[in-house]
Design a protein around this nucleic acid. Structure first.
Length: 210
DNA sequence: CCATTAAGATACT
DNA sequence: AGTATCTTAATGG
């Protein structure tokens, strides 16, 4: 675990902080598609993402979903931190997008390290900053962009996050993430296929050039 | 084979 | 852009 931690955080964490994480944290490997955190859950530990990707989404009162952003290597869930501090319930759901390696750190340590380590403080603030920016980006695309642009961005981000130019998703799943209907996604994908930007198959999409 | 499910088509709002 | 409905095609027993 120490080796992976070093690879991911060496540049921003103090040596002694890394040692403490090794001592206090618990390394977990999670397969793709697992719900790490659901709406309404209380949180007792903070996840530090070593590898893989996690998708963070919101749900409306009818149970419809909307993708907010992805977490990637070296990142953490700001919502979790906020919840830990305030002892409130989670407002979001987090699902592993790919296989992931996560170090779970107990909440109590978080405050201790905030006072003790500059590297940790910076990490936490930067983390908030990054999440907020990503969130603004998604708000922008929902508010100001049309669906086909949103779909393209979604595909690009997804292939980036999974390191794969094949999107192994059904049209229905994409529709859920973007909060629209399957038929609409199918139509738009067909359009993109005609433009030679991708190739459609059953249950997966091959990206050619976006 | 058949049941299930993804995706295409069409027509209507 | 979204809904409803039907058809077609792939997939897995």
């Amino acid at each position: 675990m120490k080796k992976e931690l070093l690879e991911t955080f060496e540049s921003q964490f103090e040596q002694s902080l890394i040692d403490e994480i090794v001592a206090e944290g618990k390394l977990v490997e999670v397969p793709a598609g697992e719900i790490l955190m659901d709406i309404g859950n209380y949180i007792r530990s903070i996840p530090l993402l070593l590898s893989g990707a996690i998708k963070v989404l919101r749900e409306d009162d009818e149970g419809d979903e909307l993708l907010l952003y992805y977490l990637e290597q070296g990142e953490t869930c700001s919502m979790t931190m906020a919840c830990c501090m305030g002892q409130t319930k989670s407002e979001i759901r987090a699902i592993t997008e790919t296989e992931t390696e996560i170090v779970m750190v107990p909440v109590q340590k978080m405050e201790e390290w905030m006072a003790k380590y500059k590297g940790w403080r910076n990490y936490v603030f930067e983390s908030y900053h990054n999440r907020l920016n990503e969130l603004l980006h998604t708000v922008d695309s929902i508010a100001f962009k049309n669906l086909d642009q949103r779909l393209m961005e979604y595909l690009i981000k997804k292939s980036e996050v999974t390191n794969d130019n094949c999107i192994r998703n059904t049209h229905q799943e994409i529709a859920y993430d973007l909060h629209t209907s399957r038929v609409v996604i199918s139509r738009l994908l067909k359009k993109l296929e005609k433009l030679k930007k991708l190739k459609l198959h059953r249950s997966h999409i091959q990206i050619i050039d976006l």
